[in-house]
């Protein structure tokens, strides 16, 4: 399944019409210990580039933007009890939400893994 990345350090993995979204390992490392995550509820409709979730460390709160537009099918309930999953498995069990992609063309501007690696190396 193809996985794409944004310059705001979100990742999105696409499986047909459904996509899973989270933040990258680089992002979690920058944020430090994650203490709270607020994910969107199922049914929420999100626009590309707009605020979709909030991730908090002790001293910082950051918005997570949706890489594409779509309708949320599930927020990761496990993060409510165990926000540390974002630190331990940011690109696995620490995913944020799943959505139904409304316009697959929006994926085109995103980076692939190699491009994102280069992007991070340049920061």
């Amino acid at each position: 399944m193809p996985r794409y990345f944004t310059e705001d350090h979100e990742w999105i993995e696409v499986d047909g019409q459904t996509a899973t979204i989270g933040i990258t390992d680089y992002a979690q490392e920058q944020l430090g210990d994650i203490v709270f995550v607020e994910v969107p509820a199922a049914g929420a409709s999100l626009a590309k580039g707009k605020e979709a979730a909030v991730v908090e460390s002790v001293k910082a709160a950051s918005d997570v933007y949706s890489p594409v537009s779509g309708t949320v099918t599930e927020g990761n309930a496990a993060l409510e009890d165990d926000p540390a999953l974002v630190n331990t498995a940011p690109e696995g069990d620490g995913w944020f939400f799943k959505l139904t992609v409304s316009d697959a063309a929006e994926l085109e501007g995103l980076m692939d893994e190699a491009a994102y690696k280069d992007f991070v190396a340049g920061l």
Binding site: F36, E56, S57, V58, K59, A60, A61
Partner: peptide, 11 residues
């Protein structure tokens, strides 16, 4: 503290 002004500022 992330609820508060010194971190969240206008939010």
């Amino acid at each position: 503290s992330t609820r508060e002004q010194h971190i969240r500022r206008e939010k």
